[in-house]
């Protein structure tokens, strides 16, 4: 009769010396996997220019219509880049289609996941913000 009780207490004692599974969020942040799909960001090339050429493919593929691109020409004939590049993270579903569609590898999902905000407009990220992320 006492046997099972001791067995149970023994288990409890054993747990006390184990490493805890719970992460004390937000004091501690969880490390996400390499392939984690956070929100999109824009990349620069090695010269520091924005990689995006405003081809609109991400805008076209985006299933939740979160992306708006306004293109602009540059001084050279083959020069095209976005004047505006807006991602509405309130709409984004983190599917990563934009990253897959991009012919230039200019847009990628980062590993950030903290997106809770009190105001919606904070979630509308423009080009500068997306480049910083």
């Amino acid at each position: 009769m006492i046997g099972p009780l001791l067995k149970g207490l023994g288990k409890t004692l054993e747990q006390m010396f184990r490493k805890p599974i719970t992460i004390e969020y937000p004091e501690k942040k969880r490390e996400v996997s390499e392939r984690f799909r956070g929100h999109p960001r824009l990349l620069r090339d090695e010269t520091g220019r924005i990689k995006c050429v405003a081809c609109h493919l991400c805008e076209t593929i985006c299933p939740s219509k979160a992306i708006t691109v306004v293109p602009e020409g540059g001084p050279q004939m083959h020069d095209k880049h976005p004047r505006e590049f807006i991602v509405d993270l309130a709409r984004c579903i983190f599917c990563g289609f934009c990253q897959e569609a991009c012919p230039k590898g200019a847009i990628m999902l980062n590993r950030k996941y903290e997106l809770a905000q009190y105001r919606r407009d904070v979630l509308i990220y423009d080009k500068e913000k997306l480049l910083e992320e």
Partner: peptide
């Protein structure tokens, strides 16, 4: 033919 389909208006 250049591979500039992403910026070519004809794309």
């Amino acid at each position: 033919h250049p591979l500039d389909c992403p910026i070519c208006d004809k794309g």
